[in-house]
Write a protein that binds this DNA or RNA. Structure first.
Length: 729
DNA sequence: AGCACGCCGACT
DNA sequence: GTCGGCGTGCTC
């Protein structure tokens, strides 16, 4: 087969390892045809199975005698993936226990982006007024932009046919030119004047810029309370990286990726950045990917998956709201974008900034021990202090039967609304009631084949499962004992709290903000606008209200259930509760008026809440870190979760036991479980789980990979390994 | 990701 | 009898 190639001594016996973006554990060996010059990272076409696929050159080798290899067909003439990108793919796969091919798939979803953008005819206004300016022609000139535009785009925006556009060219109103279908992104200007910075902010920005100038790997934790101007401060670091000709990536939680958020970048840098998120269309995705890969797109704001864009000259990654749990990808390749951002920066040798008002304990620990530079923004410009936070002991102030708002909360709402100010009631439970129970037989309504209660939604008249998406009309009778009108709602949801607030304050304008009530972004924006304009008196909201919005007239925040998340087997529950409550409380009093917050709780003695009320973060961190150290939990030790699932409970049990028995012997490892997972049954599958706790010196990823490779499962039974789990369901 | 192979239900 | 449903396994 290779006899013809013998003339080319340089290529004789040469093979290349090609990695394909499919679920394969490693790269495959191929023969390199004579005369084809290849480098690591090159994009090539090669036959795999019955297909021709695009892959990436992973490495090289020499042919083993007697082993027939398929041959690479062609190399694509584009910029190869950089060596540090290949390293990053490798690292991600190893650390998270994912297959190499699946990680590559996150990088090259759409290889059409490898070809240069098609060249088409584009139009722009000539600046001259056309002869015979008909209404249609005027509409095109007025509404056809942004320019340059394709005839069809301009015509569609103006609501006319393409004939009008062509006519305008003849009449002299438009000029035609050739250009790419996907236009490049405008170059950001690092030196536009941004907002006026306070002295503290300027210094912090200067510190960050100095880190960029080192040109080496470093991590900064940018730590500042809500409204302290973190964004403006890290803009200074972005500007510095841009001046040095580098690309910048700003990671934000998915739901923070809004038009308003992008506008802040546009104001500072004179150009809207490219944005990247999971729901974008194919064309937009292709454009961003191509421009980033060519190094032309300098500024990207994106959700976690943007970390796997092939930046050739990245100089800075900012992880905004670094504590946010949505950085953890829970499906497919399981990874934590915050941690992988640090890895990518390390491999490429540049800066990372982790920004948050409520940093994760891991980051604070790293800042304390000097691994991260700690940059603290203590002040809120414009507003004096964080709101005063009080605890309401629900054992002492018992709400009326069937009600959820205690007297101190009602009094506080009364005072602020009487002053014409706004109140926010926070409750992280959608719907009307989180539990539907039969008074006659005690049956609790569950989602089919799943251990998850159905939530009553009064607005839509349905019973819904927030875990699986199942929903049905609210039944009239108990499905088990068939007693009519016996079903009753237990516990509060936002709808019910809103109902209660409306009853208590009949003249107040009460509204709900949750993902059910504000389905589309436009409606959400409208509700936010009404709140900002003071057209709402009492807003009842879920997690959604926590994310950075400015409500100038909001002066009181009531947390309906401050106990949420404190109990249970989740070691991060205290931290999570503390972070959420700080962020919620931080919504109050952003203008000149200092606000206040009240947190209802059954455990006013819980240290997370005591620290919160005292405004003493150091105390909370101290206590929490001491506890983690004692238990050997992160950041002092390592943790992995293993989840087993399948259609038969007994077989899942047996699988978990078999897996446990196969645990490799090693020092510094402790195994907890297996036991039933908190959601023991999901969509008909039975679930068991175990935890593996390791000392900091253990390479837990490697240990888990070795362990996993010892067990083969029947295909209906699955084992999933989650390194450093964030969810404990 | 595709594509083939394989084992159970309803059709000319 | 076979056509085809998708569940499962493999690709150098």
């Amino acid at each position: 087969m290779s006899s013809i190639a013998c003339y080319h001594a340089t290529n004789v016996n040469q093979t290349a390892q090609i990695l394909f973006p499919v679920n394969v554990p490693t790269a495959f060996d191929y023969a390199v045809p004579a005369g084809l010059d290849l480098a690591r990272g090159d994009f090539v076409f090669a036959p795999i199975g019955k297909q021709m696929k695009l892959g990436v050159v992973w490495g090289f080798g020499t042919a083993e005698p007697g082993r027939e290899l398929k041959s690479i067909v062609d190399r694509k003439a584009t910029r190869p993936l950089s060596p540090d990108m290949l390293d990053f793919i490798d690292w991600t796969a190893r650390y998270n226990g994912a297959s190499l091919g699946n990680v590559l798939r996150m990088v090259i979803r759409n290889y059409k982006a490898l070809d240069p953008s098609a060249i088409v005819t584009l139009y722009r206004p000539s600046g001259n007024s056309p002869k015979n300016l008909t209404p249609s022609r005027a509409a095109v000139l007025r509404e056809g932009g942004p320019w340059p535009a394709r005839a069809s785009e301009a015509a569609a925006r103006a609501g006319v046919s393409t004939g009008v556009v062509k006519g305008l060219v003849k009449a002299g109103g438009l000029v035609a030119e050739s250009g790419p279908v996907d236009p490049p992104f405008p170059e950001p200007d690092a030196d536009l004047l941004g907002r006026e910075l306070t002295i503290g902010q300027k210094e912090a920005g200067e510190d960050l810029a100095a880190q960029i100038r080192t040109g080496r790997f470093n991590v900064s934790l940018l730590d500042g309370v809500t409204g302290s101007g973190k964004t403006e401060v890290y803009f200074e670091a972005v500007a510095e990286a841009l001046r040095r000709g580098k690309q910048c990536l700003i990671l934000v939680p998915e739901i923070a990726l809004t038009q308003a958020g992008l506008r802040r970048f546009a104001e500072r840098f004179g150009a809207e950045p490219a944005s990247w998120h999971s729901q974008m269309g194919e064309a937009a995705r292709r454009r961003v990917w191509r421009e980033v890969a060519q190094g032309r797109c300098k500024l990207v704001v994106g959700a976690r998956s943007a970390l796997y864009l092939p930046f050739p000259k990245l100089g800075l990654i900012v992880v905004d709201e670094e504590h946010d749990t949505s950085y953890k990808q829970e499906e497919g390749v399981i990874y934590n974008a915050r941690d992988m951002a640090v890895v990518r920066a390390h491999l490429s040798g540049h800066s990372v900034i982790l920004a948050s008002a409520t940093p994760s304990l891991e980051s604070l620990h790293n800042a304390r021990n000097g691994k991260f530079a700690h940059i603290i923004l203590p002040e809120r410009p414009g507003a004096a202090v964080l709101p005063e936070i009080g605890l309401v002991d629900l054992k002492e102030h018992v709400p009326e039967k069937g009600k959820f708002l205690s007297q101190p909360l009602l009094d506080a709402i009364d005072v602020v609304t009487a002053r014409g100010e706004q109140a926010l009631l926070y409750l992280n439970r959608r719907g009307y009631a989180p539990l539907i129970i039969c008074r006659s037989c005690g049956e609790k309504l569950k989602s089919p084949d799943t251990d998850s209660w159905l939530v009553q939604h009064k607005r839509t008249g349905r019973a819904m499962c927030h875990l699986t998406g199942f929903s049905m009309p609210m039944p009239r009778e108990c499905p088990k004992c068939h007693t009519e009108d016996s079903l009753t709602s237990v516990g509060p949801g936002v709808e019910r709290v809103a109902e209660e607030a409306q009853e208590a304050f009949p003249n107040a304008r009460v509204e709900i903000l949750s993902s059910d009530t504000a389905g589309n972004p436009a409606e959400l924006a409208e509700r936010m606008r009404r709140m900002e304009q003071g057209e709402i008196d009492i807003l009842v909201g879920t997690q959604m209200v926590v994310k950075g919005h400015n409500f100038p007239k909001l002066t009181f925040v009531g947390v309906v259930d401050g106990d949420l998340g404190l109990a249970g087997g989740d070691p991060r529950a205290g931290e999570r509760t503390y972070q959420t409550l700080v962020q919620v409380a931080g919504r109050a009093g952003r203008a000149d008026k200092p606000g206040h917050a009240l947190i209802q709780t059954h455990q006013p003695e819980h240290e997370a809440l005591v620290a919160l009320a005292a405004g003493d973060r150091e105390m909370f961190i101290g206590v929490e870190l001491a506890m983690r150290e004692m238990l050997g939990l992160p950041p002092y030790g390592k943790l992995a979760a293993v989840i087993f699932w399948g259609p038969e409970a007994a077989k899942v049990d047996a699988l978990a036991k078999k897996f446990l028995a196969a645990a490799p012997r090693a020092d510094g490892i402790e195994i907890l479980g297996p036991s039933e997972a908190p959601i023991g049954r999901l969509r008909g599958m039975f679930r068991r789980r175990l935890f593996v706790q390791a000392e900091a010196s253990v390479n837990l990823s490697k240990y888990m990979a070795t362990w996993r490779s010892k067990i083969r499962t029947a295909s209906k039974y699955k084992i999933q390994i989650d390194i450093d789990p964030q969810s404990f369901m």
